[in-house]
Design a protein around this nucleic acid. Structure first.
Lengths: 87, 87
DNA sequence: GGTACTGTTCGACTGTAATCGAACAGTACC
DNA sequence: GGTACTGTTCGATTACAGTCGAACAGTACC
């Protein structure tokens, strides 16, 4: 988990919104998080968030649940996630 | 000082290198920090770093000294700068 | 004033990320 | 099997950031 990758994922208004949404509650389905966005665009952001270690997925039937990797991020880069979510 | 702006400034390998260089020592002249880069390109990065609150400038004759705004960043977003500099 | 230096600004080019629609794969349910 | 839904992948378009060279502004020093 490299800070460079985390920063790539964080430097985007859509992904920042996703992270803040996930930080507020528990795991959510993709459509719950970005209902207004095209599925292809949203899928692109899921991939970036996953590959860069911000989020992990859980498949349940045809639904995909996203969950913030808060513990991993807090232990590896303490303060970063708080800075993002607290503004 | 918004976290969004800070993240924009941090998501770039050149600027990350500048920040780490400045974090190691004290204030430095522009040319000391990026001796290998075109002046116009370097100047572009100074502007981003300044406008987004990462760095402050001090003019001395024809030299420009850059200094990391460590105290401001640490108090506003504790942990972020450490995450960047410590890897 | 003239020369040498530091950094800025401008225009142009290039590469890449974000976006979309359409086609697809997988699952659920009838 | 057929239909409906979730999310992925592909190709194409668009917008923007990074880069460069050239011209410029300001300072220093002779």
């Amino acid at each position: 988990m490299r800070i460079e990758d985390v920063l790539v994922a964080l430097d985007n208004p859509v992904r920042l919104r996703v992270i803040r949404t996930l930080a507020a509650g528990e795991e959510m389905t993709c459509q719950e998080i970005l209902p207004d966005m095209t599925k292809s665009s949203a899928s692109h952001h899921w991939r970036v968030l996953c590959e860069n270690g911000i989020v992990e997925q859980r498949r349940e039937g045809r639904y995909l649940y996203l969950r913030l990797r808060r513990a991993d991020l807090d232990s590896r880069f303490p303060g970063v996630l708080d800075a993002v979510t607290n503004g």
